[in-house]
Design a protein around this nucleic acid. Structure first.
Length: 420
RNA sequence: GGAGAGUUGGCUGAGUGGUCGAAGGCGCACGAUUGGAAAUCGUGUUUGCGUGAUGAGCGCAACUAGGGUUCAAAUCCCUAACUCUCCGCCA
């Protein structure tokens, strides 16, 4: 959520910056805002009068004087107040609906562009493997070796579900444990195991709602949402709190399944683990001092990259342009892993600095050294999407005989298996 | 699922219709005292909105949330959420 005071002060500049990502007019917002402020001024002066006069009532009563006249007048004021309050409440609703639908202002330094074609590659790590045989896609490798069963997953659930079996399930668990151990032991994150269903307010807090409700799985009989990412519960841990200076920076990590309706992706990535309704992910979340958030984005991205470095899978980091960046983000790096079946790099992580956009929605603040209460900056990144890591591992580590070599760092988590 | 009790400021805890943003205590900050510290004493200690210059001041709001009664609600009524206790059920 943007700061209404800032919009009021420099609407043209903000509109210009927002237009780098999508066409947005702030006219209606400003009009309602002005109307609201006028009404508040009027109603508050009535209220002040009401307060002053109502103090007289008990005094008059004590003196045994007649209060009929003043009560009648007060009744009139009261009715008037009610009308004003109803109107203000309606304006508040309208205003917050507009405000919640406006995306974040992209950082002024990020590349300007209209879609993913305009993203900028920042670095490329690892050598893409040259196969001396025809490499298979991960869904073929996995099904041939009994690591995944898509057909039965479709039977028990439906399209876009997968089921890990035997050593496949073990490898998935190994990846989760490997990632969590790395981030908790080497990168200083605190592990959290949060709820997988959250309430509506949490989804608004991180920006999934109200605009993207069709992307989420909604439990309708009690208004819960299946989390689309651990970002939602982790960031909302401190919703409506004022943190002490020694509580930030907070580094949190969690493994959770993620649930996405994938509305609008019909026909895309229909095979394999790339785009499912349910997938596992290890997430990193940071709540930091505003002065530090861009440094923290660099280190968070490095933390995520470390997973692929240790697994020795080639990847690249791209900086998203204004047209491709997510709704809530000010700056985002995507990490893309080399996927032989796609013959290109495929997104496996997205690391973003939201600045104070989520903190305003979720009302997460801290008391700075100057005693001022300020909004924190929030960041998060996948580290990594486990299903896609599983897929990339299979494809990059496959052997001619159909087996898959287990990377060195994963062996302790795989009972020292060499291949599966 | 059934029955009951509760939710007040950073914490604790008073307050059952009017002068209550809210006593007292703890904690915290600053000052006095001290060679220094403890103890003691004093002062201060929420957040949001509106109006000001992102200052001072002024005004308004907030006692879990939302609605109602009333001239007036922390206080009365209704609904919801959460917490606790007992019973039932369950992993």
């Amino acid at each position: 959520m943007l700061d209404i005071k800032r919009i009021r002060k420099e609407p043209e500049k903000i509109e210009m910056l927002l237009n780098r990502r999508e066409k947005i007019s702030l006219d209606r917002l400003l009009e309602l805002d002005e109307k609201r402020r006028n009404l508040i001024s009027t109603s508050e002066s009535i209220k002040a009068q009401q307060n002053a006069e109502s103090k007289q009532i008990p005094i008059l009563k004590k003196e045994g004087r007649d209060t009929g006249a003043i009560l009648a007048e007060m009744k009139k004021l009261s009715a008037q107040m009610k009308e004003y309050n109803d109107e203000i409440a309606q304006l508040d609703t309208d205003l917050s609906q507009i405000l919640l639908g406006i995306p974040n202002i992209p950082n002024e330094d990020i590349p300007i562009g209209k879609d993913e074609q305009d993203n900028v590659e920042r670095r490329k790590v690892g050598e893409v493997r040259k196969f001396d045989f025809e490499p298979l896609a991960h869904w073929d490798i996995a099904v041939n070796s009994g690591l995944l069963d898509f057909e039965r997953a479709a039977k028990i659930s439906g399209a876009r579900f997968s089921m890990f079996t035997g050593n496949g399930a073990k490898l998935e668990r190994a990846l989760i444990n490997f990632m969590l151990e790395l981030h908790t032991r080497s990168h200083g994150y605190t592990e959290i195991s949060p709820p997988f269903m959250v309430n509506r307010q949490s989804m608004v807090g991180t920006g999934q709602l109200p605009k993207f409700e069709e992307d989420a799985f909604h439990i309708t009989n009690n208004d819960y949402f299946m989390i689309p990412t651990a970002e939602v519960p982790l960031t909302n841990i401190y919703r409506d709190e004022i943190l002490d200076l020694d509580q930030i920076p907070a580094y949190l990590t969690a493994y959770t399944p993620c649930f996405r309706a994938e509305a609008g992706s019909a026909g895309r990535d229909t095979r394999g683990l790339i785009r499912n309704h349910q997938f596992d992910k290890v997430e990193l979340v940071k709540l930091v001092h505003p002065d530090m958030s861009y440094n923290e984005l660099e280190s968070l991205t490095k933390n995520a990259e470390e997973v692929l470095k240790l697994l020795e899978i080639p990847y690249r980091v791209v900086e998203l342009c204004t047209g491709d960046i997510g709704f809530s983000s000010a700056k985002t790096y995507d990490i893309e892993v080399w996927m032989p079946s796609y013959d290109r790099y495929v997104e496996i992580s997205s690391c973003s600095n939201f600045e104070d956009f989520q903190a305003r929605r979720a009302n997460i603040r801290f008391r700075d050294s100057d005693e001022q209460v300020k909004f924190v900056h929030t960041l998060n990144g996948s580290a990594l999407a486990v299903g896609r890591t599983f897929a990339a591992l299979l494809e990059n580590y496959q052997n001619k005989n159909g087996s898959v070599t287990i990377p060195e760092v994963l062996k302790p988590y795989m009972g020292d298996l060499e291949t599966i």
